[in-house]
Design a protein around this nucleic acid. Structure first.
Lengths: 335, 335
DNA sequence: ATGAAAGCGCTAACAT
DNA sequence: ATGTTAGCGCTTTCAT
């Protein structure tokens, strides 16, 4: 069943059918009704490809994240999908992994599918902070469609970023630790992503402002893996002296909690722990984890809102939006 | 840049360009090279909509799950995406929620986007087991594209199902409980989905086979929410007597663990607990959770393999595939 | 091996 | 308010 069939059955031209389908005001109620009836009777659905070809759009946005099997990414995609669906857009999802080449390939692939917009979720897409060139593929993509980044900052025309104020959050957590008498705050991270760099910078700034030294061996690189982190701490704890942990991921923080239990350290008195993302892990942990909530829902909503403004209302939109975090206090800290 | 431009620049017809793009064997190496050069030079990418219109396919599969902000669903989508991507298919993702009407709408929506195949993830799409009619929309969809269900069983032409052997798994867990002297096994569930029904049936069968009574008050409906479950148990424990918990979700099981801690019950001696899905929650818990692994990775792989066989090789494929579960033993049980 | 031309099903400008 | 028609960019059949 195509538009010609419907037109014939309804005794009108295909233009009229098209108008009815697209809710054009200039078609008489009578013919509209007639056409709708024929359409319903034959369960007609316009061919999306033909429509896309004519219009140059299928109302689809591409979402790329490194790995949706990650609570944080899944949450982001969930928020994005909901907001986009509400505005009549569909999501085509890609999981690129963390390798540069695959990121580049995946972006190209989605562009070739003629998406209306590209959303890159995660701080890994902001590059390593050293070479500008490793984000060139994003600027290239932005020549074809507008690109929205979530939790990453990349400069370039037609690139719009939304990110959490991670600097401020870790600054405040570190200050709070210091106020409660903690002197040896272990900063645990698992990548050099944009977001991780912001977090480390906040940590360092707070130490500096308090007149504390920044000690390299208190910056501890690990993996976002509970058991790996726990074992690393057990291994290094002879040479490492710390009374609190600021982790860039909840999984890392829970590794620290597990370590404390094995060592018989009281939480938070002997070891205070703060995680990040306020994921379900934070409350599944025992004791429940104090965690920084990066307000992912807010970020996703703001992203989609601006996207719609740009795509449909052609309004001027904010280029970069920074969202404040919230520190959710639970049992692994005494502040 | 379209196919005409390339044809002109390469001094060939659009048919030849099309042949080159589609890797047709009947084009001389020389012209092929020439065309490829022009294409590269101009960064030509075929228009996906036009291609879709001609071919009737954009190599896209629709994936619908109730909610990707759920560890299990996210894992499934992750596996599916990876396998599909490897075969050159893209995923368009929809989160339908659990309401019947929205499921129906979302299926229709994706069908109208001319997906090559539809994958429904989650046992919620199998209906409530009472009305056949609540899965009619799936059979309707299957008239247009083949439908693959993950962890659900729905009968109908062109519908292919892959599900875990949940019956066997809960049967074995229950038997193991009984062998270890547990007499009052609390079955905790959060829905009447297909999978939940299988789990309950396995539990009941094991009790029956052991000559134990099936007591209605030992079937406890809750939510897949740690705190809610914990509080429900605290509230009902005056009237409820149980020495072990078999939960249909890890989150529920952790709620039971939290309850045991508050009540000062030793795990697993005074309260043994088994969760489901072997999610990250199982190891973030303390003590770590014994959990049934439903082999989601295997299910997803089998699904995509059959899909490719059907779509590209037009081979006869298995209609229903049942995958055995694995019981991952950790610290909340003594078996 | 290559080209010409007829679709694929729709939208939108233009004509009436 | 409705119809005619020219694209949109590709695939594919049929000639050559």
């Amino acid at each position: 069943m195509n538009i010609y069939d419907i037109a014939k059955l309804a005794n009108v031209s295909i233009a009229t059918v098209s108008r009815v389908v697209n809710n054009s005001p200039k078609v008489s109620p009578k013919t509209k009704e007639k056409v709708l009836a024929v359409m319903k009777e034959n369960e007609y659905t316009p061919n999306a490809f033909a429509r896309g070809l004519g219009l140059g759009s299928m109302k689809t946005v591409g979402i790329i994240c490194p790995n949706i099997d990650d609570i944080y990414m899944a949450k982001a995609v969930s928020y994005l999908e909901r907001n986009l669906h509400a505005h009549g857009y569909d999501c085509i999802l890609g999981c690129s992994g963390f390798k540069q080449e695959e990121k580049v390939d995946y972006v190209r692939l989605l562009l070739s599918k003629k998406i209306d917009t590209l959303i890159l979720v995660g701080s890994t897409y902001a590059g390593n902070g050293k070479d500008e060139s490793d984000t060139d593929y994003i600027r290239e993509a932005a020549e074809q469609v507008s690109v929205f980044m979530i939790n990453a900052k990349v400069s370039g025309d037609n690139i719009y970023c939304t990110y959490a104020d991670d600097f401020q959050a870790t600054y405040e957590v570190t200050k709070a630790f210091i106020r409660r008498g903690k002197e040896k705050i272990l900063f645990m991270y698992d990548s050099e992503s944009y977001s991780a760099r912001q977090k480390m910078a906040g940590y360092e700034a707070a130490l500096q402002d308090a007149g504390y030294p920044i000690r390299g061996n208190l910056k501890f690189k690990t993996k976002n893996d509970i058991e790996y982190t726990r074992d690393m701490l057990l291994e290094y704890n002879r040479t490492l002296d710390f009374d609190s942990v600021l982790a860039t991921e909840d999984g890392i923080a829970i590794g620290a909690v597990k370590y404390a239990k094995i060592k018989g350290l009281a939480i938070p008195e002997e070891l205070a722990v703060v995680g990040y993302n306020n994921s379900i892990l934070a409350i599944s942990s025992d004791p429940e984890l104090t965690s920084v909530d990066s307000k992912l829902g807010v970020m996703c909503k703001k992203t989609v809102e601006r996207m719609i403004d740009l795509l449909e209302r052609e309004i001027q939109i904010e280029k970069n939006v920074c969202v404040p975090c919230e520190i959710v206090r639970r049992c692994t800290t005494d502040f």
